[in-house]
Each structure stands twice: as C-alpha cells, then as structure tokens.
C-alpha cells in the first residue's frame, strides 16, 4: 500500500520571505514584458493625454471661466479617473494568462498560490506611477502650477495605495469573466459612471440633490479631492482619510472574493 516516497522538503506553506521573493519574480516577468513591448506604455498614455487636452481646451473655458483655472481644478480629477481605469488592465492581463494556461504552470510549481495575482497587481503599480508622471508632466507643460513637489510625491504614493486596494475588483472580474473583452465591458460600465458622478470634473454643488448625495460619498470624489489637495488647492486631510477608508473597505471585501473565485476556478 505504501508507494515509493520521494524525499521532499516538508512544506506546508511557503514562508513570508519566499512568498515575497515569488511575488517579486512575478513582477519581474511583467517588467520584462514591458521591455519587449514598450508600446504598451505609449498605448496606456494615449487616452489620459487626450482626456487632459480635450477637457481643458474644450470644456475649460465654460467650466471655470478660463482654461488655466480649469486645469488647476481638473488635473487631480483626471489623474484619479485614469488610475481607476488603469486597474482594469490588471484584470484583463490575469484573464489572458488564465486562458492561455500560464497559470496551470504556476500552479504546478511549489510557490504560494497567491503569488501570481499579487505579482501582477504589484507590477501594474509601475504603470500607475508612469501615468501620473505623464499626466503631471503634460499638465506642467500646459501651465499647471504645482502646490509643492513633496505633494506630488505624496499624491503618487496615495494613488498607488488606493490602486493596490481597488485592483482586487479588477482581479475578481478577470478571474470570473470568460474573456478579456467581458472584463473590459464590465469595467467600462462600472468605471465610467462612477468617475463622472464625482468631483473629478465638476464642483458637485452644481449637481441636483440626489446626485450630490451620491457624489459626496463616491470614493472617486475623495480620491479626486485628495489629488487636488496635494497637487493644486483645497483640503487634504479629510478626503485623504475617506480615500483610505474606501480603499480598506474595498480591499477587505474584494480580495477574499477574488482569491476564493481564483481557487474555485481551478477545481
């Protein structure tokens, strides 16, 4: 009844150090992918550049009286909106890997089961930083007046923390959906209205009552206000606090759901 036993290290669960190293290796793979396909960075810069130019030079005059005033207002909002859109690519990437069989290989290796997902999320933070640099750079060229340099670094940090948390929504969709296109459609249907019903582009006091009520609690409002506060003007502490509350809440709900769906997917 006893079969030949191969001497194996007795592992029940990879140690924290090993897991961190595996997550970093997964992130390394994503970085090498960008190295081989640098156009991906151009690709994901196109829409924020377009949004920034169109919003400021088309709507700016009417929105805030002058394009330069509107630029001061909207840049933080656009950075927040773009960060949320970017998280979608985490889900589409995971979906593609799942369908191609890359995850089957990962799952046959003696590594932490969460390493592939965590590595992808982690690596995508590079894209977040890249995007804020591109948008802030273009904004400065257009005449944006930065509140403080320290504020810009802090804004990037807050953005990364928020994106790390809400990426799990995207991961959940990436695991559950049966195609990349579906992930994109789901994401679009959620993200588009979510970002527009916030303070990202307009003062929410101009909205009708029912919309104001929602916009005031919308996480995008808090993130956009935080970005605005750190980069140009306005309060920082309160929106920052609410941003972290939302991030923690979203993470607490979606990360376990995503991990559960991921494990089930493999049955």
């Amino acid at each position: 009844m006893t079969a030949a036993t191969i001497e194996a290290p007795v592992i029940h669960r990879p140690g924290l150090g090993a897991t961190v190293s595996q997550v970093l290796s997964m992130a390394w793979r994503q970085m090498v992918r960008i190295k081989h396909n640098p156009f991906e960075l151009v690709d994901l810069s196109l829409s924020p550049i377009m949004f920034l130019l169109l919003f400021v030079y088309v709507f700016g005059g009417q929105m805030a009286g002058s394009t330069s005033d509107y630029l001061q207002y909207v840049l933080g909002g656009l950075i927040a909106q773009n960060a949320i859109f970017l998280t979608m690519y985490t889900g589409t990437g995971i979906n593609a890997d799942l369908r191609k069989g890359v995850y089957d290989r990962f799952r046959s290796l003696p590594i932490a089961r969460s390493a592939p997902l965590a590595g992808k999320i982690f690596a995508d933070m590079f894209k977040q930083v890249w995007s804020i640099v591109v948008m802030l750079g273009l904004g400065l060229l257009m005449g944006f007046e930065l509140r403080t340099v320290a504020g810009a670094f802090l804004a990037a940090l807050v953005l990364v923390v928020f994106a790390l948390a809400i990426s799990w929504i995207s991961v959940l969709m990436g695991v559950v959906a049966d195609s990349e296109e579906k992930v994109q459609i789901y994401a679009f249907v959620i993200i588009m209205p979510l970002t527009f019903t916030s303070s990202a582009f307009v003062d929410i006091n101009t909205m009708p009552g029912f919309m104001q009520a929602w916009a005031k609690v919308n996480p995008v409002t808090h993130l956009a206000d935080t970005m605005r506060g750190l980069l140009s003007f306005g309060p920082i502490t309160e929106p920052l606090m609410w941003t972290f509350v939302w991030a923690a809440g979203i993470f607490a709900v979606t990360a376990p759901l995503a991990m559960r769906a991921y494990k089930r997917k493999m049955v």
């Binding site: 793979r29 090498v32 992918r33 081989h36 396909n37 191609k100 069989g101 890359v102 089957d104």
Partner: peptide
C-alpha cells in the same frame, strides 16, 4: 500541459 505555459513576449 496541452496549452502553452510559456510567456510569448519573453525570450
């Protein structure tokens, strides 16, 4: 496996 477990973009 039957499906490619390699990353096409990587060498």
């Amino acid at each position: 496996g039957q499906f490619a477990g390699v990353d096409e973009l990587l060498t």
